[in-house]
């Protein structure tokens, strides 16, 4: 199975989780990554630049109508919902907050599931909200791969625990093992080398 995209939902405790994730992914990682991180609506996006400095991949805010390509980590801009169209481009909306959040993880995950179907990987990380639980369920319904951070190892266990309550994930792993798994999925031969 060729995986075409990874969507990640992360909330409280997300900044350090993303730092770990981004620093461990190599420059030639070949699957685009799209992230919703809950944050203050007045945030100015400076933190994206900080994360970019710590990453081998290019970290950027997702722009409306932008085509999704590998080599990039896209982050939803503050105060907009991020959606994926079937032609694999981004849409932004200012619809009502969902699960108290804009951007909402469920909104991204549900549209991504429609667009990528069984070639999608969904990941729910640390957080203090149940956002992402419905979205990861939809990803499973479309045959995608569901990965959840082991709540015992998450800074905030509530969000990964809510995802596990909603579905049976394919993997429940600590952050570092999630990265190892993604590397294996991206390059299946690497194991035998």
């Amino acid at each position: 199975m060729k995986h075409e995209a990874i969507v990640i939902g992360v909330s409280s405790g997300g900044m350090s989780a993303m730092k770990v994730l981004f620093s461990l992914l190599p420059k030639d990682f070949n699957i685009p990554i799209i992230i919703v991180q809950h944050l203050n609506a007045r945030s100015d996006g400076q933190w994206i630049q900080l994360l970019n400095n710590e990453s081998n991949l290019h970290v950027k805010e997702a722009d409306e109508k932008e085509a999704i390509v590998a080599g990039n980590i896209y982050i939803a801009p503050p105060n907009y919902h991020l959606m994926i169209e079937k032609d694999k481009t981004f849409s932004l909306t200012i619809d009502e907050r969902f699960n108290y959040a804009r951007p909402s993880i469920d909104v991204l995950f549900e549209s991504a599931a429609e667009a990528y179907k069984n070639t999608l990987i969904g990941i729910v990380l640390t957080g203090a909200n149940h956002d992402g639980a419905n979205g990861i369920k939809r990803i499973k319904e479309y045959g995608g791969l569901a990965i959840v951070q082991d709540p015992k190892t998450a800074e905030c266990a509530y969000m990964p625990a809510s995802a596990i309550a909603a579905i049976t994930p394919d993997y429940i792993l600590p952050l570092k093992n999630i990265v190892a798994l993604l590397l294996k999925i991206d390059n299946p031969k690497s194991e035998s080398e």
């Binding site: 959606m83 549209s111 429609e114």
Partner: peptide
């Protein structure tokens, strides 16, 4: 209109 938005 944006398809993803309309669908939702």
């Amino acid at each position: 209109y944006s398809q993803a938005h309309i669908r939702r």
